[in-house]
Design a protein around this nucleic acid. Structure first.
Lengths: 219, 219
DNA sequence: TCTATCTTGTGACAAAATTCACATACTAAT
DNA sequence: ATTAGTATGTGAATTTTGTCACAAGATAGA
C-alpha cells in the first residue's frame, strides 16, 4: 500500500506564484495528516480532510494541485505519502534552525509551548539583553547576550529568527539579523519592520487579534 | 493567523458586510493613531498613515468608508477624532472583559505581555485545572479552578474568552463557555473547534506561522 | 476673492481567492 | 470483464479583495 506515487512533480520546477494562504493551509494539512497517520488511517479524501479542517474540498485539491498530482481518483490520498510530499514542499523534511531573540514572557512561552516547536524545528540559540537572563537555560536553550548577535546568528547557521522583543529595539535587531543573512522572520513585535523584499516576514500580532474580536461583540 | 470558516457580521446601522480583514486593519489604525496622538500629531492623511503601516492609501480610505466619512478633503483626518471613531466602531471605547482559560506558559505570557492587553481590555478571570496554579496570582489575576467554569464566566460577565489549553480539552471547554453565553473566542489551541455560527472565533496558530515560514527558505 | 494645491470618497477596474461542476480515471465488487 | 460507485484535477464562474484614477470638496496664501 505504500507504493504508487504516479505522476511525480518536482517542487523546483514550479515558477508559478504560490499564494501565502496556500502555504499556511499546507502546513495545516501537514499537521492533520500527522494526526491521521498516528491514528493508523492510511487514506483520506479531500472531502474528509476538508471536513476535519472545516473547509471546502475543492480548495484542498486546488492547494495541492499547485505542486503536483498526489491523489488517486476514486480513492483519495494516501496519508503517509501526502504527508511526506507536503513536508518536502514545506521543507520541513529537514532540520530548521531557529534563533529566538527576546526571552521575556512571550519568548519563554514560545520555548515551552509544545504546539510551537514541532519536530523539524530546533532552537539553536536564544538571545536577550538582560543580565538576569543571560547564562540561564530555558527548556534546554541557553540564553546568550545580544552583543555579538550578528556573528552568532551566522555562526550557528540559523534559518529563521523569532522576534519577541520590545518594539523600540525591533528595527535595529532586524537590521542585524538581515546582515547576518537571515531570510525569514517570525515577528511578534507590534510594529512594522522594514527589510529587503527577499526576506520573508510573518507578523503575529496578538493585540490585534484580541482587539478585532471586540468588534463582533455587538448585541 | 487563521480564521473560522464563513460567517460575517455587520455593524448595526449599515447592513453592509464588513470584511474581516477590514476589521483587523481598523485595529491596526487604532493603535497607530494612538501612537500619533501620543506624539502630539493632530492630523494625518491616508497617504501618511498608509506609509507608516506599509500599505496602500486607497485601502485606508476604503476601509474607513465602510463606516462613514471621517476625513477632510485637502487636509486628511484629525488624529484624535479618527481614533475615537475607530474605537467606537471596534467597541474598544468601553471595557472589554476577558477571561483567560489555561495559565500555562502561553497563558502567563499573555497575561504579562504588554502588547496583548491594552487599555480597554481587562482580564476578569483566569482558569486552570492544575492545583499548583489555582489560587496563585499572575499579574494581579488570581487563578480559579475550572470546576464551575460556566457559572463563573456568566457571573463575571466575560465578553471574550482566550483559550490557551491543551488540544484535548479544547472542545469540551468551548462547549462550556458557549453555554455560558460567550460570543467571541481567541483560540490559541492548534485544533479546530466547533461552535455555533454566531460565535466569532479567531484562531492564532503559532505552530503554523513558524512552519509556513520554512517554505520560503528555498535557495 | 481667486488660485494653486491637497486629499478625500468612490465608481470603475484588476487581481486574487474561492467555489462550482464535470470529464476523467481509478476502485471495488460481482 | 463489466459495471456501479467514488474522488480526483481543473477549467469556468463567482465572490472577495485590492488598486487606480478622478471629480469634488477643502485649505492656504496672496
Amino acid at each position: 500500500m505504500t507504493d504508487s506515487p504516479k505522476n511525480d512533480v518536482s517542487v523546483a520546477a514550479d515558477e508559478k506564484k504560490i499564494p501565502k494562504a496556500v502555504i499556511k493551509r499546507l502546513s495545516l494539512y501537514s499537521r492533520m495528516l500527522q494526526e491521521l497517520e498516528h491514528k493508523n488511517i492510511t487514506k483520506i479524501s479531500s472531502k474528509e480532510l476538508s471536513d476535519l479542517l472545516g473547509m471546502n474540498p475543492a480548495k484542498v485539491r486546488k492547494d495541492l494541485a499547485y505542486f503536483g498530482q498526489f491523489g488517486v481518483p476514486g480513492l483519495g490520498y494516501y496519508v503517509s505519502e501526502l504527508k511526506a510530499q507536503i513536508k518536502r514542499i514545506l521543507r520541513t523534511d529537514r532540520e530548521i534552525r531557529v534563533a529566538l531573540i527576546g526571552v521575556g514572557h512571550l519568548g519563554q512561552a514560545l520555548l515551552a509551548y509544545g504546539g510551537f516547536l514541532r519536530q523539524s524545528f530546533r532552537v539553536v540559540a536564544a538571545f536577550d539583553t538582560s543580565p538576569d537572563k543571560i547564562g540561564r537555560t530555558f527548556n534546554g536553550v541557553k540564553v546568550m547576550s545580544t552583543e555579538h548577535l550578528e556573528d552568532q546568528i551566522r555562526t550557528l547557521g540559523a534559518d529563521i529568527v523569532v522576534l519577541a522583543i520590545p518594539a523600540e529595539n525591533a528595527q535595529a535587531t532586524v537590521d542585524q539579523v538581515v546582515r547576518a543573512g537571515i531570510r525569514a522572520i517570525l515577528n511578534f513585535v507590534p510594529a512594522r519592520i522594514v527589510c529587503p523584499e527577499a526576506i520573508k516576514v510573518h507578523y503575529v500580532d496578538l493585540g490585534i487579534e484580541l482587539e478585532s474580536l471586540s468588534y463582533y461583540l455587538k448585541d
